[in-house]
Design a binder for these strands. Structure first.
Lengths: 255, 255
DNA sequence: CGCTGAATTGACTTCGGTCAATTCCTGTGG
DNA sequence: CCACAGGAATTGACCGAAGTCAATTCAGCG
């Protein structure tokens, strides 16, 4: 873990995790406070920085305050698989909740800031704010379904559809956290990265990307991506946004 | 939902969910009782029966009491992807926790019995037994990592390795719930099913399966599978058992 | 004993991988 | 301000793993 700088967060800053969770459930003031308490100690990272390494001990948990990163694994033959991208308001260390070590390597995609806290604090949160516990569980379930979607994309569709799905996914997540200004967005990933995410070679990413452009549904200018007709593309590749809405009616109402 | 028969569970039967969870955390009597309360209404299914259908409303939740099933999705072109297999003591409806509908189709693989309960009961559980909430969260995180493993397998390895990984995974899960007698186990799946699980055609499953047999590490007799050297095969395909152990030290101790 | 769905086998095709050369950027230092 | 270095992208030729299609065999079952 390098380039980290522990600073106390501005006390009045709104918590990114709270912002994200309150999309789904109306939170009380004390619940918001409890979430803010998770974001004491701040760390800054530059693109490419490695936050945690696969199989290495990882005691603390981290929440994304700004920017985005990805989780990946490496095989013996040197191949890499990017498992998921992680955005503002998410628990970056989801892959190490269940063990004393991290099951994946965490790498910064853009400049980003993370907030760290003790793992036992999470246990405390479940104990004192059960609604938040239930909500985190629901979000984890949604995330699992999103991952199942990627599995389907990789297992059963061709190169063009895989990339299209990935771009739609990244777009909708960036939008959800308000990191997209206009109709286009920046994807600071190399073709190698894209390939490792969707299970293709960088060479073939180039070919598929070009084929995708030829359909007219996607435009590209360096690292800037513009999807001209999101609905049309979503229909073609059967993309579903798993984060726009989640049902929390089974969780107790606010008081 | 067909062939269902609502019967009250034998009051002294041990809860499969409790049995599974207590592998990871020492549960109190009242926690065990709370878990047993989830298993009131019982349903029986035959192999091939469909328990829930993708995109259709699914209000209740189901826990697996015996047997196993799988969750799948279907694409417009008729292709199918099996997302995961679900075993005794798991929440079968994980893919519908976050919505009013199911994100996957649930199909019985073997004869199996499920226990249904109201979704709000889950909210209650989080409220009254926060340790169980935290534990369910940890298990969901582990499950997400297991799914990430499958993603890697499908995205970055060849046919033989994909099948080998799948067989090792099924074996270790069947063992975990005590459904394996000797060194071999029954896999009541067609080659089509296996293909839909690992992203290959049924034809190619046949070829890969035969290649796998030729290595001498796997033997096959109809639906019976025997892995002669589990450790050797695990090393070759880099298989990791994500369920043997999970860390719960961050969850409060029993009283 | 014949029917049906699954498994096996073979011939041929294709999508994506491999390898390698070339071009394009972008940042850097003279 | 320009030359240069090095990574990324592009392009092309060729290869191979997996898909497709179809015929044949097998196994369970009424």
């Amino acid at each position: 873990m390098n380039r980290e700088t522990a600073i106390t967060a501005a006390p009045d800053a709104e918590s990114p995790l709270a912002r994200r969770l309150s999309q789904y459930l109306d939170l009380t003031y004390s619940e918001r406070d409890a979430l803010r308490a998770l974001e004491q100690e701040r760390h800054e990272f530059e693109p490419g920085d490695i936050i945690a390494r696969e199989d290495e001990a990882l005691e603390r948990m981290y929440i994304v305050g700004s920017g985005w990163l990805h989780a990946s694994t490496h095989l013996q033959d040197g191949a890499r698989q990017i498992l998921r991208f992680i955005f503002v308001g998410e628990i970056a260390t989801m892959f190490s909740v269940a063990w004393e070590y991290s099951a994946a390597t965490l790498t910064a995609v853009s400049r980003c800031t993370l907030y760290g806290f003790e793992r036992t604090t999470l246990g405390q949160l479940f104990r004192e704010y059960p609604r938040l516990g239930a909500l985190l569980y629901a979000v984890a379930a949604a995330e699992q379904v999103a991952m199942a979607d990627r599995l389907t994309s990789i297992g059963r569709t061709d190169g063009m559809a895989r990339i299209a799905t990935l771009l739609l996914d990244i777009r909708s997540r960036l939008r959800a956290v308000g990191e997209i200004s206009g109709s286009q967005f920046e994807v600071p990933l190399t073709q190698q990265d894209l390939g490792d995410a969707v299970g293709l070679t960088k060479t073939h990413i180039g070919r598929s990307l070009k084929a995708l452009e030829k359909t007219g549904l996607v435009e590209r200018e360096g690292r800037l991506i513009r999807i001209t007709d999101v609905n049309a593309l979503s229909d073609i590749v059967d993309f579903k946004d798993r984060h726009a809405h989640i049902d929390t009616s089974w969780i107790a109402q606010k008081h």
